[in-house]
């Protein structure tokens, strides 16, 4: 499956969060929405003070599944303020995971994207995908994914070139820009949330099928 759902990250999806506030951050990886409070047994990110001349870095966390338990390859993780942590999986047995975390004075999660949160999804099949934030139906958009037939080397090369071009939605002050993007199969779309109380990016059909209710964990 290649579902568009930031609450259930699969192969081809990423969730990234920028951490500006120093301190201890705890997060959990779960197969579905986490409804419990986080504690010291959850995964740890320590956000240190940034050295004055240091550039922000990206820390990429690969999520795997061991005996049914979702596990990050980097834990504990030490970063500097302003750094970005990105979670993704390539593990076939990970059939969807969510990131839910809390830090000093803030919460974050793939199911409730807040400031400086990004969700990415590579579209694997053609079609028109209407998406919606199930927490606020006024936040919505559409992705039109064109089919590609790359049966010769020239077509394949042209397609690969297209795959390197991102398409993006930006969500700011409850508004989505643009409302629609046009891509081809295999291209990745980014959802960047600049502010807000929490945005989930969900295929409208999933939301209508009952995937609209969830509780994010807050300390």
């Amino acid at each position: 499956m290649n579902s568009l759902d930031s609450r259930s990250l699969r192969i081809g999806d990423c969730y990234a969060q920028k951490f500006d506030i120093e301190g201890e951050v705890r997060y959990a990886l779960s197969h579905s929405y986490l409804t419990r409070a986080l504690d010291k047994d959850d995964f740890l990110i320590t956000v240190n003070k940034r050295a004055q001349k240091g550039e922000p870095a990206q820390h990429t966390v690969h999520v795997t599944s061991k005996n049914g338990e979702l596990t990050p390859d980097l834990n504990p993780l030490e970063i500097a303020s302003g750094d970005i942590v990105l979670w993704y999986t390539t593990h076939p047995s990970v059939l969807g995971f969510a990131v839910t975390g809390v830090g000093p004075k803030f919460a974050f999660g793939s199911g409730a994207l807040r400031a400086e949160g990004v969700y990415t999804h590579a579209f694997g099949v053609p079609g028109t995908f209407d998406w919606v934030n199930p927490l606020d139906p006024k936040i919505y958009g559409s992705v039109d994914v064109k089919a590609v037939d790359a049966r010769d080397a020239k077509q394949l090369k042209a397609w690969y070139a297209l795959l390197e071009k991102p398409a993006a939605f930006e969500i700011k002050d409850g508004k989505v820009s643009p409302k629609r993007v046009d891509i081809v199969v295999g291209q990745t779309v980014f959802w960047k949330v600049w502010n807000g109380d929490g945005v989930a990016i969900t295929d409208k059909r999933l939301a209508e099928a009952g995937g609209t209710v969830y509780t994010s964990a807050r300390r």
Binding site: Y88, T90, T120, A168, T188, F190
Partner: peptide, 20 residues
């Protein structure tokens, strides 16, 4: 493999697909 793509100050990893 899905190529690495950079935007908004971060980069997605290169993600290789295993066909079923």
């Amino acid at each position: 493999c899905l190529p690495q793509i950079c935007i908004f100050g971060f980069c997605t990893p290169k993600i290789c697909i295993s066909w079923p």
